[in-house]
């Protein structure tokens, strides 16, 4: 088991009343599983992803991620876990606009203090996503699909144990989305990473091992599509 969520609540204080975004979320994810979290807008998908990835703290409950009780770690300890064990792919790519494609991919490795060899690895990954010739381009010089491919290369650069993807194809056209999607699954298979995808795209969700459906902050179904590949 790589991820466990126990009795997760996330509440926000509104002007007049408290808003419960996540309400008693319990689930576990096994190593190597590909899980999609689906649900309508406002159902709490992205909030759940943020909590599981250690980007935010639950109001109550606990989350264990890759052997660490992430919900009780300090900010710096969570950063350490994210850097060593987690990869991210965002809907709007989130590349550092001031860094080139190559430098963006190198950043997680450099944060680990693995500067040596980082360039070679980043170049290989860019080559792998088909951007070998664009490594010195800035994000503003790349198309959306290319930016997401850089983001993919970056997500895999630190060999994460678990990868969180927030609507990875949400900002892309169908054709480009399919390319990115293909790359995501291929790389995931090659690197044997656990993958958690938040998506609206049921077609994409159906390609995963398991679909967790959220509505109004609660899990309304947790359905296994196909057996996960145990590592």
């Amino acid at each position: 088991m790589i991820l466990e969520s126990k009795s997760i609540y996330k509440k926000y204080k509104g002007v007049n009343k408290e808003l419960t975004v996540l309400d008693d979320i319990n689930f576990t994810v096994e190593k190597g599983q590909i899980v999609s979290i689906v649900g309508p807008s406002g159902s709490g998908k992205t909030t759940l992803l943020g909590l599981c990835a250690g980007l935010d703290n639950p109001t109550s409950g606990s989350i264990s991620l890759a052997g660490s009780m992430i919900s009780s770690l300090t900010e710096n300890e969570k950063a350490e876990v994210r850097n060593r064990k987690v990869g991210f792919i965002f809907q709007n790519f989130q590349l550092l606009p001031t860094l080139t494609a190559l430098e963006n991919v190198m950043i997680p490795l450099e944060l680990q203090g693995r500067a040596k060899g980082a360039k070679d690895k980043a170049e290989q990954l860019l080559e792998r996503v088909g951007l070998g010739g664009r490594s010195h381009h800035y994000p503003s010089q790349l198309s959306g699909g290319e930016q997401q491919r850089v983001s993919l290369a970056r997500a895999f650069s630190n060999d994460p144990e678990i990868l969180f993807a927030d609507e990875p194809t949400g900002n892309l056209d169908e054709e480009t989305g399919a390319i990115v999607e293909g790359l995501l699954f291929d790389l995931n298979k090659e690197k044997q990473t656990t993958l958690i995808i938040v998506t609206h795209d049921l077609e994409l969700a159906n390609k995963t091992d398991r679909i967790i459906k959220l509505k109004g902050g609660r899990i309304i179904s947790d359905q296994t599509i196909k057996a996960s590949t145990e590592i």
């Binding site: 950063a79 350490e80 994210r82 850097n83 060593r84 989130q94 950043i107 997680p108």
Partner: peptide, 15 residues
């Protein structure tokens, strides 16, 4: 701010 958030997300400590 956005760049800082990305760096933080990738594991850079606040300090």
């Amino acid at each position: 701010v956005q760049s800082i958030a990305i760096l933080r997300c990738l594991g850079m400590k606040a300090e």
